[in-house]
Write a protein that binds this DNA or RNA. Sequence first.
DNA 1: AATGAATGAGCTTTCATTCAT
DNA 2: GATGAATGAAAGCTCATTCAT
Lengths: 204, 204, 204, 204
Amino acid sequence: MTLIESTLDSIAEIGFARTSVSEIIDRAQLSRGMIHLHFGGKDALVEESAKYSSAKYYDSLNGLLKTAGSDPQESVEAIIRSDLSEEVLNKRTVSLWYAFRGESRERKAIAAYSDTRDARLRNLAFEAYLKIARQSGLPEPETTAKDATNGTLALLEGMWTDFLLHPESFDRGAAIRTIFRFLSALFPGYFDLDGAVLKAAARG
Amino acid sequence: MTLIESTLDSIAEIGFARTSVSEIIDRAQLSRGMIHLHFGGKDALVEESAKYSSAKYYDSLNGLLKTAGSDPQESVEAIIRSDLSEEVLNKRTVSLWYAFRGESRERKAIAAYSDTRDARLRNLAFEAYLKIARQSGLPEPETTAKDATNGTLALLEGMWTDFLLHPESFDRGAAIRTIFRFLSALFPGYFDLDGAVLKAAARG
Amino acid sequence: MTLIESTLDSIAEIGFARTSVSEIIDRAQLSRGMIHLHFGGKDALVEESAKYSSAKYYDSLNGLLKTAGSDPQESVEAIIRSDLSEEVLNKRTVSLWYAFRGESRERKAIAAYSDTRDARLRNLAFEAYLKIARQSGLPEPETTAKDATNGTLALLEGMWTDFLLHPESFDRGAAIRTIFRFLSALFPGYFDLDGAVLKAAARG
Amino acid sequence: MTLIESTLDSIAEIGFARTSVSEIIDRAQLSRGMIHLHFGGKDALVEESAKYSSAKYYDSLNGLLKTAGSDPQESVEAIIRSDLSEEVLNKRTVSLWYAFRGESRERKAIAAYSDTRDARLRNLAFEAYLKIARQSGLPEPETTAKDATNGTLALLEGMWTDFLLHPESFDRGAAIRTIFRFLSALFPGYFDLDGAVLKAAARG
DNA sequence: AATGAATGAGCTTTCATTCAT
DNA sequence: GATGAATGAAAGCTCATTCAT
């Protein structure tokens, strides 16, 4: 196993504080010097691990988003279902995510990889909501779309926190339904409690 | 200053990793042995500090909630405005909150004090939403109220995360407006973008 | 034994490079943390040791100089005999002196304690030579005294180096005689090959 | 650049302790394995470097001594002026010389190359002084010549130490004059404060 | 009860050396 | 011969904890 994966495993399993160089090299079955040879030090390895972990999250997400249809409400649904899927949201990823966030106030390099969903995801959601808001004839569609985007991402964050603190009792279905209840109220005819609603008119 | 407050100051200012016994006793101007004498060790002190910090959060919140009117939508507005107020949501509290969450996967005693808004707050929100849902004549008012509660608390979590990662650019007003956009869609006539809407009929 | 003495012993016996924290604490029979507790780190301990070693050299020298009579040529003789005595010039002191000098180019704090005989000793020698030069009626007594001082201290340095490199074959008597051969040529009637010459007139 | 020159550069510039294998190969632009391939290890390379450095010192000195005239006092003057010339005595050589001396107590192979002027130089000086002593009709010319030799080399050592510790304020002219003051006293008519005195009789 | 000097396990890092290529 | 990735012993240092006072 690589040093980065061993580092992530260790942080996920025993936490940031107990993730020592010794722990990492034991897991990676590599020699002590490798960390400094390849990364320059433990801190740099941890930062690379944060970067890699963040990239993996977006990769997983992007992989899942590919399955979305062309309708904007389908894109939104894909984002929500993907971000709350077992592949993306599980004990390991949530442990890592919060471990890095706990360090982010002290280490700006880590903060950069701990961001609340990155620009690409925000843009994807915003574009979808903008189309929906315009189609619905809502006033100020940009502002509506922006708030819907921020709100959706905030709701996803909240669900992740819930998973962190109650991994055993967390209910993915309930989390998804809660989000769609808000969306179906905001964009009636586009969403219902089960997700995206595809109208005959919209499908042509 | 007490050991607990010094511990919290240290965690908030220089982070979990650099919060050593020496750092704490320097801040508290107490002798080295006091931590073990009074708490049994550093870990126990940190747990007590998490407990105290959590209690202080709810105290601040409860203090602010007292100003709420008797209408359920006013209660909801009070919760939201309080939880995003400068008194409750600031660099210190958010640093502490995420520092403890970073540790929560490894230390269950800390997890207990890092919870996503506790039972009292959930009940308060749920009771308010239940009244609103019933008054609105919505079907399945309990489920609606539960989802609205979970969603509201999730949105607040999301806003806190946003503050953690972008303390300088965070906009309290925009955060509040975003939440009310969702609530005003879910409970039209009870909320608008500015908060609670108090109908003549409701005021009697 | 103290940490400083253990450090000096180690440097004298096994050299600068092999004088590790482990070596020092083993010799001192103290715990690992003491070096950092009392001195702040190995470097600071080494500097304090250099300072102490330097002070001890001057103390030994001053102790021996007390035996000197009141005539200036007796002062000069006392300086030379003391600086080449077994008490002052021995394997330990010469090892330390050159070990510190080897470091002095890189560490200015150590250079300060490695100086070629300090100001007090220079002044003592200069005052003695000035009196002799004036009594002898030599032209430019100040310049003569200055050169005699520099030359005497340089000769002593040279003898120390000889001792460093050939501790077994070094001959204190020959070293002293060599120096007095130069001095007796420079100040005839004041010194001969055996040291200071005390004239009837000078003795009263 | 060769490994030996890189090693000497490193010791002169950053000191013994910081001269690592990595530092040396970086300077030499050679691969890591070369040190062991060609020298068997770092220690052997350092010893070869000490040997080379010593040889270079004597080469420089010999080159400068060639300019000396045939009179013995001219030979002595050449030795002194050469050993204190910028070519021979400069920051680099003095750094190297004292770095090796600092190690000499522990590594006899290095001590051999750190000697206080070698046999050839001693013989050259001794032969010159012996001629002068005999010409002057001094009693015990051998002993006088031996002391003059030891004294001269000791004085040169002392001047080097002065340069090591005060490279900025060191005054070559003053150092030379000081030595000649001693020599002119010991061998009047052969030296004065400016160096060798060449008598009409001696020149034929 | 209260102190803080002392401990030593465990930390990150360095670096001479090895050896498969 | 020549390379440089890999090794792991040993380095300096940190720090929670202990305990004689």
